[in-house]
């Protein structure tokens, strides 16, 4: 995850607390989405950013996951996301994101 984004997530965490934050990602591939989820939940696996060794345990979802799609106005989703939903491998993304969330739950 981009170092600047790690910094922002950490600032929001400090300002609002873990129970007030859900991190939404729009990664193009499952692996990249999983990496972002891992970073904000378990710490930066590349040890490059401010979340290196910091486990925030923030819930993280991809914008194309059903849990998030349900929360969004259908028209807005159609206008902003539906094209990418068609392009992306949503099953692979969901699998990666679920795997990280399960890992966090077990941790």
């Amino acid at each position: 995850m981009d170092l600047e984004n790690q910094k922002r997530v950490k600032e929001f965490y400090d300002q609002y607390g873990a129970d007030q934050i859900v991190v939404l990602v729009g990664a193009a591939e499952g692996e990249a989405g999983g990496l972002a989820a891992e970073t904000v939940a378990l710490g930066d696996p590349t040890f490059a950013g401010c979340l290196a060794g910091v486990s925030l345990k923030l819930p993280c979802y991809h914008i194309c996951e059903p849990e998030i799609k349900e929360e969004i106005d259908e028209g807005v989703y159609d206008e902003q996301i539906s094209m990418m939903e068609m392009v992306l491998d949503v099953d692979d993304i969901c699998e990666e994101m679920n795997a990280i969330r399960e890992q966090v739950a077990e941790a």
Partner: peptide, 20 residues
């Protein structure tokens, strides 16, 4: 480098918009 096939990603998006 993990950035995928950039032109192909663009063509996919254009095609998906065509479907829409």
């Amino acid at each position: 480098a993990g950035a995928g096939d950039v032109p192909e990603a663009n063509f996919k998006m254009i095609a998906a918009l065509g479907v829409k």
